[in-house]
Nucleic acid binder design. Structure first.
Length: 676
DNA sequence: TCAATCCGTATC
DNA sequence: ATACGGATTGAC
């Protein structure tokens, strides 16, 4: 007999079903393998959770339809983890397993060599290659143990790596210093763990980070010791790499969020880099966050954990506050030596003058810093929050945001501006006019519905226009841009202007001589619980690319706490503040929140049927901003300790609804990222 | 009294 | 989803 998890998204079917195994399939039906079963009349995919001698099911059992593969794609460790993740997020096991296991590719499965007997391939081999400034990898007492000089900037760093190599489970929140070569440090932590005979999983936000880490690992570990999993990889290659790890040919897996479930046996370390990046939140039900999944995994596997970044989230701070993890932070002297100078320039100019003119967006401090950098032969990084040319325009006289006359979408300029009635002050006249960002229609005959004005002004300036302006302000200096669609990985040393949107900043080979952070108000005025934390994260990741003898200029009010945090390079201070504030307001991670989204009737129906734990605080429901008509959201707030009970109650209630074929859906999310 | 239909519930 | 059972309804 086999205990099967059927691959259906229905919450009331979130339990194992027993099937008889025909003798002919016996060998192929392995724990963790894929099967096909007849379920309620239809054929569905499933996973073998267990082989059992007897069933507790009273009724008749069916036979398995087909043993799809003898590859145990769901190890007991991953099954347990997936169950824990489903429970935490009020979701079902099948949904989590769908995130954990890539689609099967038969050719790839046949092509990967079979599991190496006993010792996994590559284990015990001395590392090869060179780390950092020429420290040779390896030490006499432990083959493959990397040099730890890079970690000595952090008082607890060397001890942390030693603990990894010794097979212990140290848990840390690591705040990297500006200029830190984080991929090299992570590669060393990976090497240390491998040297102790255990495996590693590393999750990074995006393909660029993955690529950089991939190269760093290649340098530290040599060929064939790790694989990279990412959604960007094609199906065959993706499954090949998955099976390569599953069969133990590599012990280290790096990747974007889907790699959080990577099949690594005998796990010694999990790492998440930049856990504040919202791409770590999976957009598929039950919407698990890579940090939470990895930390749960570390706990279940008895593995070490490293929450890494230039910034620190309130969630990271909570790990320290509860004593779950320890802090890995540089001492003040090291930080001072590595940090660039940070200057603030008030952004009042923004309001008082035409924001389209480069001189008003770039205060003289910023211009001076840029000039000094270029004169010294160093590139200048300019961070602009919005891409495009002029992504938002307003009436020149009354400043009402300009909207499309057809669909009320926001108007934007793709390039300069047409002369005549609807012109933008300060823009060159030979280009096309404004158009709608939603429906794409041109809006050349703009007339302001409020005051009747017929001229437009830029209300937000995008990266592309900034690049134009910078090129004019610094004639003869090459201008590069990096943003969505056209990403630059690195820029060579030498005078250049690099205009980038947040997250797209290229790494400068010798560091930037100046980093200019413009239009900071666009990040800070967002109506979001995490606006401050997110702004600091973006600024720090740009500022971290500056040389220690360079200058960072932030165009923002120096009195704002989050700006202070940047000036002092103190994300720890800001995170502690942020966590206190969340506790006061009653928001995650200080409390746990269940979010129900749907029609008011559907939400009421679910809540009425839910056996909610005592003391639940109900907020709302309120209409969802920017959502469809009639869609509302109810928040259910409980102390963290009641989180599991809340999730259980919501999953159960969703199950009752789906069993009764409620037609209106309710989306259930636990601690969603957007709360306001 | 029987059969067509509706509703609720289980799905191994 | 589909499939089945028990209750309900309607026609003979």
């Amino acid at each position: 007999m086999a205990r099967i998890c059927v691959d259906l998204p229905l919450p009331h079917l979130d339990r194992p079903f027993d099937y008889l195994v025909p003798a002919s399939m016996d060998a192929k039906v392995v724990v963790g393998g894929r099967v096909r079963v007849r379920f309620a009349g239809q054929k569905v995919d499933g996973y073998v959770l267990d082989r059992v001698a007897a069933s507790e099911h009273g009724g008749n059992l069916s036979f398995l339809e087909r043993a799809v593969s003898a590859e145990p794609v769901v190890s007991p460790e991953i099954a347990r983890l997936a169950r824990a993740v489903a429970d935490r997020y009020a979701g079902n096991l099948a949904d989590v397993l769908r995130l954990a296991v890539p689609p099967r590719h038969a050719r790839a499965e046949a092509a990967v060599p079979p599991r190496a007997g006993g010792v996994p391939a590559g284990d015990g081999k001395p590392g090869s290659g060179i780390v950092g400034d020429g420290d040779v990898v390896g030490s006499p007492d432990r083959p493959g143990f990397p040099a730890t000089a890079g970690w000595s900037a952090y008082p607890a760093g060397a001890a942390y790596l030693r603990a990894l190599a010794d097979g212990r489970a140290p848990r840390a929140v690591w705040t990297a210093t500006p200029g830190e070569d984080w991929v090299a440090r992570v590669a060393e932590a990976v090497a240390a763990t491998l040297s102790g005979g255990r495996g590693v999983v590393v999750v990074v936000p995006d393909g660029r980070d993955l690529h950089r880490l991939d190269r760093a690992l290649l340098a530290v570990l040599g060929e064939g010791r790790h694989v990279a999993l990412s959604a960007a990889t094609g199906p065959e290659e993706r499954y090949t790499r998955f099976v390569t790890a599953l069969r133990g040919h590599v012990r280290a897996v790096i990747g974007t969020r889907a790699a959080m479930f990577a099949p690594v046996a005998d796990l010694g370390l999990v790492v998440i880099f930049d856990d504040g990046d919202d791409v770590h939140a999976d957009p598929h039900a039950p919407y698990p966050h890579a940090r939470e999944v990895l930390l749960t995994r570390a706990e279940l596997a008895g593995a070490a954990a490293l929450v890494a970044g230039y910034s620190r989230t309130a969630e990271g701070q909570l790990l320290l506050a509860t004593g779950w993890a320890r802090e890995l932070t540089a001492d003040r002297d090291t930080l001072r030596a590595r940090a660039p100078r940070v200057l603030t320039a008030g952004d009042d100019v923004q309001q008082s003058r035409d924001p389209g003119a480069v001189t008003s967006r770039l205060p003289s401090v910023a211009l001076q810093a840029a000039r000094a950098s270029l004169a010294g032969g160093r590139p200048v990084l300019v961070q602009v929050p919005r891409r495009g040319y002029i992504p938002s325009v307003a009436c020149e006289t009354c400043r009402t945001p300009a909207r499309c006359p057809h669909c009320s979408g926001p108007l934007a300029l793709e390039s300069g501006v047409l002369g005549g009635t609807a012109g933008v002050a300060g823009a060159s006249p030979e280009h096309s006019g404004p158009s709608c960002r939603w429906c794409g229609r041109g809006a050349t005959g703009f007339t302001c519905p409020v005051c009747g004005g017929r001229r437009l002004r830029a209300s937000v300036v995008g990266a592309r226009r900034t690049a134009d302006e910078m090129g004019r302000a610094f004639a003869g200096v090459p201008v590069r841009t990096s943003g969505r669609g056209e990403l630059l990985d690195t820029v060579p040393d030498g005078p250049a202007l690099v205009v980038a949107t947040p997250g797209a900043e290229p790494v400068a080979d010798a560091g930037y001589g100046a980093v200019l952070l413009l239009d900071t108000w666009a990040l800070l005025t967002r109506a979001d619980l995490r606006a401050g934390e997110e702004a600091l994260r973006r600024w720090l990741s740009a500022a971290a690319l500056a040389r220690s003898d360079g200058t960072v200029v932030i165009v923002a009010d120096a009195a704002v706490p989050v700006v202070q945090a940047l000036v002092r390079f103190d994300p720890a201070w800001y995170a502690a503040r942020e966590l206190d504030e969340r506790a006061e307001l009653g928001f995650p991670p200080a409390v746990r929140v269940g979010s129900l989204t749907g029609s008011p009737a559907a939400i009421a129906d679910l809540v009425a049927g839910a056996r909610l734990p005592a003391g639940v605080d109900e907020l709302g429901p309120v209409p969802v901003l920017g959502g469809d008509e009639g869609v509302e959201r109810l928040l259910l707030r409980v102390p963290r300790s009641t989180g599991p009970a809340l999730a259980r109650a919501l999953h159960e209630a969703a199950g009752v609804r789906s069993a009764h074929r409620a037609k209106e859906p309710v989306r259930v999310q636990i601690d969603p990222l957007e709360l306001l």
